[in-house]
């Protein structure tokens, strides 16, 4: 089956089996391997991308369901620059192995696009569909708080590990 969609601003068409998952179209046909597969069953969120601006888990969607849609993956989030969320993860040590990170960043960016002043609880709620096996969620929340501040034009809070002398 032919499916046509926009991915990171590019029009793409691909011939897929009707059962092909969106994540496999992205990773295998389009070689966008920044989107990861952790569980293939909707639990881990490693495969999160934006579909028409909203975060979706691309392992729970068929590629053909994305017909005509506008998809953004981690590779296209900031097009070579760093999105505030990406910067936040780097600055606040929001990652270790990085496997969950693209999904975390896409979920967080989706959440901040709707609400740039989330409370800690709202941030946690916003990433509850994303699992990280190494970092622990503390720094991920701090990274998103950093990004939120940046997006509002505020100065991000000092990192907790900064010891004043």
């Amino acid at each position: 089956m032919e499916v046509s969609l926009t991915v990171n601003g590019r029009n793409v068409s691909s011939d897929v089996e009707p059962r092909t998952l969106l994540v496999h179209l992205l990773r295998e046909d389009l070689d966008l391997t920044g989107t990861h597969v952790g569980c293939e069953s909707g639990y881990c969120g490693a495969c999160t991308v934006h579909l028409d601006g909203k975060p979706v888990k691309s392992c729970t969607m068929l590629a053909v369901q994305a017909e005509g849609a506008d998809i953004t993956t981690i590779e296209g989030l900031a097009n070579g620059e760093l999105h505030a969320v990406q910067e936040g993860f780097w600055e606040r040590h929001g990652l270790q192995c990085g496997y969950c990170t693209p999904g975390m960043i896409m979920s967080a960016a989706g959440m901040l696009a709707e609400n740039d002043s989330p409370s800690e609880g709202e941030i946690k709620h916003g990433i509850e569909g994303n699992l990280c096996r190494c970092t622990g969620y503390h720094n991920i929340v701090k990274a998103i708080e950093y990004a939120a501040a940046k997006m509002r034009g505020d100065e991000p809070a000092e990192p907790e590990w900064e010891v004043s002398s």
Binding site: R27, L32, T33, G34, T35, H36, V37, T73, I74, E75, L77, A78, L82, Q86, F89, W90, E91, H93, L95, C97, G98, Y99, T101, P102, I105, P159, W161, E162
Partner: peptide, 20 residues
């Protein structure tokens, strides 16, 4: 604080894992 050198690739989807 040392910013990790491996992070730019990891946060932009440019890292390479075995499955990639």
């Amino acid at each position: 604080v040392v910013r990790r050198r491996e992070d730019p690739a990891l946060i932009q989807g440019k890292a390479r894992y075995v499955d990639d």
